[in-house]
Design a protein around this nucleic acid. Sequence first.
DNA 1: CTCTAGATTATCT
DNA 2: GATAATCTAGAGC
Length: 224
Amino acid sequence: MVAADTASEAGRGPPPEPLGRAIFERPIDDLAVALLGTRLVRRWPDASVSAGRIVEVEAYGGQEDRASHARSGRTPRNATMFGPAGHAYVYLVYGLHTCLNVVGGASGTIGAVLVRAVMPEGDPSAVRARRDRPDRPPVALERLASGPGNVGRAFGIDLDLDGADMTVRGAIWLEAAGSPVPPARVVRGPRIGVTYAGPGWAELPRRFGLRGHPAISRPFPVGA
DNA sequence: CTCTAGATTATCT
DNA sequence: GATAATCTAGAGC
């Protein structure tokens, strides 16, 4: 734990700067791992703020990656993936759920990191209000943003956030939160829901999580 | 515990 | 017209 983190987590000192553009300009698998443990911050239209730690992600590449939305080249939907790093790529899946990605990748490459699970930090009431249903018992804290669709719902990731610059304090951004996660605490496995990519791509271990974290959306393969 | 089906719509073929 | 980087409830074991 670094001194600056202790201060900001205690509410003292200046708030941390958003992660800068250069952070996102690295090989997409490396970026995925680097985003584990960072803080996702959402500023609502009423100026209140919700936040949480990213605990699970997936890496998606460019045209070569048969599981990636970029596999067939640029289209209106995936255009953000082909733009600058550090922006939010938001899309609708199954006609129901929005998913949040962070655009990145080594210079000259196309890629994005899907945010699959977030552990809420601080007052979760705004996030909970979006997830709890009046006719059901409250969702457990670690399940509020567990799974990409639940991240989208809990943090109000609407389609109009597609293309948002996450390196500034706008509607959504990322902050460093503590030390980088040691490799031993990172678990990896195949990406979820990409069997359409076919053999050789569907099994690639490009899903990463904080080992044993309760907010992980579903188990990683045993032995991973 | 596992498995299956249904929801619901922008996007691409 | 088919598909989709998902979630949930409900049935069955």
